[in-house]
Amino acid sequence: MADRRSSPRPARASGEDRRPLVADPSPRPWNGDARRRPVAPDPGTPRSARDAAATRRRILNAATAEFSALGLAGARTARIAERAEANQRMIYAYFGNKDGLFDAVLEHNILLVQTAVPFDVEDLPGYAQQVFDFYRANPHLVRLELWRTLERPTSMRSLPLVTSALAHKVAALERAQAAGLVSAVLPPGQLLDHILTLTHGHPMNAGDAASWTDEQRRALAVGVAALTGQPLGGAT
């Protein structure tokens, strides 16, 4: 029997590929070599993958439109990701699940209202009218609030930024009552509940925002004036 150790190895043909037969751990884009296939780009990659804040903002804006139109049950994260030009996985990375995204959308838009319409303890009837005007200009937020009352009615006070903002409003009312600017018939917390019920609850029950009238706007201010003991002042 021939000794295998002494058998000469066959010579490689000229030009034979001498690369080791292992999987390429980092496949490279196709460069025209017929032995390699082109690598398709990931269609879910966001335009600015490095800008997490921008991606999160796009997701929130897209989710606001989706939830306003279809509610929590009808919304689809795939559509939200497509509208936001983001990878669907980023929704779960940032918000955990669809419920978490819905709560984040609520919080984002509630704070948007609060930023656009500051809580003015010296003119609460005027504040109520400004909230009315904001919702009339942004009817999709009215629909979003209606979906919240139907599908996640207890979520509002579990949102930390909203809870903090409410606490600041209560403190502002307490100071205003001590200064004689607001009626002290009700404790500040209860007074705030009634003010918010009028200012934010009225749009929820007023039908299509396109049909809201200036008479409704004035009636809202009159109600808040009666509740707080403040004159109509700048309210019109």
Rank of each mutant, 00 (worst) to 15 (best):
D3N: 14
S7M: 15
S7Y: 12
R9Y: 11
A11F: 04
A13K: 06
G15A: 03
P20I: 12
L21A: 13
D24H: 04
P25Q: 06
P27D: 11
P29R: 03
W30N: 08
G32C: 08
R36Y: 10
P38W: 00
P38Q: 02
D42R: 00
P43S: 00
P43I: 03
P43K: 04
T45Y: 00
T45K: 01
A49F: 00
R50E: 15
A52E: 11
T55Q: 12
R57Y: 03
R58G: 13
L60D: 05
A62I: 07
A62V: 04
T64L: 11
A65I: 08
E66D: 14
E66M: 06
E66A: 15
E66I: 04
F67L: 14
G71K: 10
G71P: 06
G71L: 12
L72Q: 03
T77L: 11
A78S: 07
A78P: 04
R79V: 03
N87Q: 00
Y94C: 07
Y94M: 12
N97W: 00
D99T: 08
F102M: 09
F102E: 10
V105Q: 05
V105I: 01
L106N: 11
E107C: 07
H108Y: 05
I110Y: 03
V113H: 04
V113Q: 06
T115N: 08
A116T: 05
V117E: 10
P118V: 01
V121K: 10
E122H: 13
D123L: 11
D123V: 08
D123F: 07
D123N: 15
L124P: 07
P125E: 11
G126V: 09
Y127M: 08
A128E: 09
A128W: 15
Q130L: 14
V131A: 01
D133H: 09
D133M: 09
Y135H: 05
H140C: 08
L141V: 02
V142L: 01
R143V: 07
L144Q: 06
E151S: 14
T154R: 05
S155T: 12
S158V: 05
V162C: 11
T163G: 15
S164C: 08
L166C: 06
A172Q: 12
E174Q: 14
R175M: 06
A179V: 08
S183G: 11
P187S: 10
P187R: 03
G189T: 10
Q190N: 04
L191G: 14
L191W: 02
L192M: 10
D193L: 14
H194M: 08
L196R: 14
L198G: 14
H202S: 15
H202C: 12
P203E: 00
A209P: 03
A209V: 03
D214P: 05
Q216A: 08
L220F: 06
L220C: 02
V222G: 10
G223C: 08
G223E: 14
G223A: 15
A225W: 04
A226P: 03
T228M: 08
T228I: 07
Q230A: 06
G233P: 10
G233C: 11
G234D: 12
G234C: 09
T236W: 10
